[in-house]
Design a protein around this nucleic acid. Structure first.
Length: 327
RNA sequence: CCGGAGGUGGCAGAGUGGUUAAAUGCUCCAGACUGUAAAUCUGGCGGGGUAACCCUACGAAGGUUCGAUCCCUUCCCUCCGGA
């Protein structure tokens, strides 16, 4: 039976470092599950480079065609598209499924490394509406409407959908637009991607956590490291290649904050660092909220083995667990 | 020592004699999320209580007033300029 190892957790829990170690031991290849690492040129800000500690110990690094390689371990789903283009869950599932299939053909163990909860869920379990394509023309016109108008429109064309939405989503223009889009399509679904778990894979899921304070500290340090690694230059390079500030803000976190800095909305580097640290704390919290249901038996990431990265020998215990599971 | 500005909740920063536990932003906490997900959206945020409600608060101490964070006096502290 095909086996699949999944490692997930919030930002700064050391997913990639752990996955690289496991890949060396178990003859694996990594598949990143990250909505921003898919873009070419977003390297430092998205943390594609492994931690500096790892880099010093393992200097063998190269970039291949559509993959990066550390110490002989390939990492996929980096650099799959242009940063100016919008990439979505749908694209991700399609691309990642193909990559994973190829890894199997090579007789290797795919290790999915993810911080983007929705992508991970879609890849593993599928998403029933995923196949309904987006209608850019419709979206353009809907985007000119106010939230109020969007709500009325949806209530009119699909009262059932409106009923299903919760209060928070009803205030969310982005959700309203997609709901209208789904309601007004005449697209007949072929079902779309079904999710790997339904393909009969034997999966082991490992979730990484850390106490809040320690997580924040790791985030704060990482922001400073990234500044030292030239995150600012990276942003300027993106500007020079024609990326708009608007697009940078869409990309979020480092790129959004960096856009504010380049535009002078943030006055100095210290403020830049502070703002960024705060934003990433918030991001980590959102990830934790998403993954939290995981700890419940019927939760989103059921059958997950959770590890607190501050516990002694946690990496060794993970290794033992994988060794027992992997045939 | 003299002249000027100012001291507000974790921070930044409004404000005004009563409707101010005090705008707004940030941090922080909680949550939603089936095609932008590092995005987007919702709620909370002095303390206590399920609640009605109670307590402590706008540098300190007094005073004026029915009532002061807002007016007056003194003191303490900070910043700018001049000796």
């Amino acid at each position: 039976m095909k086996q699949l190892l999944v490692i997930f957790g919030s930002t700064s829990t050391g997913k990639t470092d752990l996955a690289l170690k496991l890949a060396e031991k178990f003859n694996g290849e990594l598949v990143a599950c990250d909505s921003r690492q898919v873009y070419v040129g977003l390297d430092i800000g998205t943390g594609k480079a492994p931690s500096s500690k790892f880099k010093i110990q393992n200097s063998k690094f190269k970039k291949g065609n559509k993959f990066w390689e550390f110490n002989g371990v390939k990492i996929w789903m980096y650099d799959v598209t242009d940063p100016g283009k919008q990439y979505t869950v749908y694209d991700y599932v399609k691309d990642a499924e193909r990559i994973i299939d190829e890894i199997f053909k090579r007789g290797k163990l795919p290790i999915i490394v993810g911080g983007t909860g929705l992508y991970l869920k879609a890849l593993l379990e599928g998403l029933s509406n995923l196949a309904i394509p987006m209608d850019q023309k419709l979206r353009n016109s809907l985007e000119t409407l106010s939230r109020d108008e969007l709500q009325k429109k949806l209530q009119k064309i699909s009262p059932q959908k409106w009923q299903q939405m919760n209060y928070s989503d009803r205030q969310n223009p982005r959700r309203l637009i997609r709901a209208v889009e789904i309601a007004s399509t005449n697209f007949t679904s072929d079902g779309g991607p079904k999710g790997l778990l339904r393909g009969g894979f034997k999966t082991l899921k490992i979730g990484l956590t850390a106490p809040r304070q320690i997580l924040y500290r790791r985030i704060d340090e990482r922001v400073i490291n990234r500044m030292n690694q030239g995150m600012l230059d990276e942003a300027e390079r993106l500007r020079k290649t024609g990326m708009t500030f608007k697009r940078m803000r869409q990309l979020g976190l480092e790129y959004g904050v960096l856009a504010d800095y380049l535009e002078g909305k943030i006055k100095n580097k210290n403020e830049l660092i502070r703002v960024l640290q705060g934003k990433i704390h918030g991001f980590a919290r959102r990830q934790i909220t998403w993954f939290k249901k995981a700890s419940l038996p019927a939760g989103r990431e059921k059958n997950t083995f959770w590890f607190d990265i501050t516990e002694k020998e946690f990496a060794g215990r993970v290794e033992n667990l994988v060794a027992k599971w992997y045939d």
